[in-house]
Design a protein around this nucleic acid. Structure first.
Lengths: 143, 143
DNA sequence: GATACGAATTGGACTCTGTCTAATCCCATC
DNA sequence: GATGGGATTAGACAGAGTCCAATTCGTATC
């Protein structure tokens, strides 16, 4: 997980993964790792272009895909409408507020899962997602 | 969970939930509960129209939404591309093959989750999803 | 059987996320 | 300053899902 989002460190992080550190990729990486939030592709696009660089939608999608493939960020699929990208790659789970769309991390260290069955034959694990869906408590039961 | 998918039983199941048992809804319910599979809206549409009734896309979406709201089926969000509808409403988890798209149930009875933190303040639980992503084992490591 | 009314259905336009492609741009190397 | 290859780009495109106004259906009433 990238905590140092200085320009020099981002360059070396990208290089380590064989990713050429172009302007656009640096901007996208900076947006992701300076806020450690769950962002959609559209949010990344807006944030990147809100600064100064001009970056196209295609590049944002290309770059996010590249970051996912190289393990820099993780896809979070909790909502049918869009994918979120999570710069926290440490094992963890998520609360998802189905009304506000807010995503909150749950540290995986604290959680133990007992009795998970063996993988189906001929399959290897590619990841696990645990999502607790929540909603705001009803403000007034009589409403 | 509905195991008896006779016409009479489906009518009464729908009525119990305040859903008028129209032809289209009966067809959709029958498609879901006769195969106990995870189906996308598109697959439901094709299966329903493959029989004899003519049912529109809008009705399939309306009806699936209605079934979800009344707890007849459960949404399964494992893939960014589309939602699956699961006629098994007993608590359970899923294996998801990210390459083939195949979804397999994991009985929740066997699995215990220890140490899950309290819900965020002001929130109530709306559901939990556990998804184990798998892929076919590499056939030849040297490839 | 005819009428009326509310609910359900419908086609089709529309939105939105994400992909694709061919042209252009950038930049390191020679 | 020419060359070549990867990166970027605009915009067309694809697919899932939504929306809406018009129609149809089922039922209750006369």
């Amino acid at each position: 997980m990238i905590t140092d989002h200085s320009r020099e460190n981002l360059v070396s992080v990208l290089r380590q993964r064989g990713i050429g550190p172009t302007h656009q990729r640096m901007e996208i990486a900076h947006v992701l790792f300076s806020r450690m939030e769950h962002l959609s592709a559209d949010q990344v696009l807006c944030l990147v272009n809100g600064r100064h660089a001009e970056t196209s939608k295609a590049t944002v999608y290309n770059t996010l895909k590249l970051f996912v493939e190289t393990g820099l960020v993780r896809e979070v699929i909790v909502d049918a409408a869009k994918v979120f990208y999570d710069p926290n790659t440490a094992p963890h789970h998520h609360f998802y507020d189905v009304e506000s769309g807010e995503i909150t991390d749950i540290d995986a260290e604290a959680v133990t899962i007992v009795g998970m069955p063996a993988l189906p034959p001929g399959k290897v694990a590619a990841g696990m997602d645990v999502i607790i869906r929540v909603r705001p408590a009803a403000p007034a039961p009589g409403a």
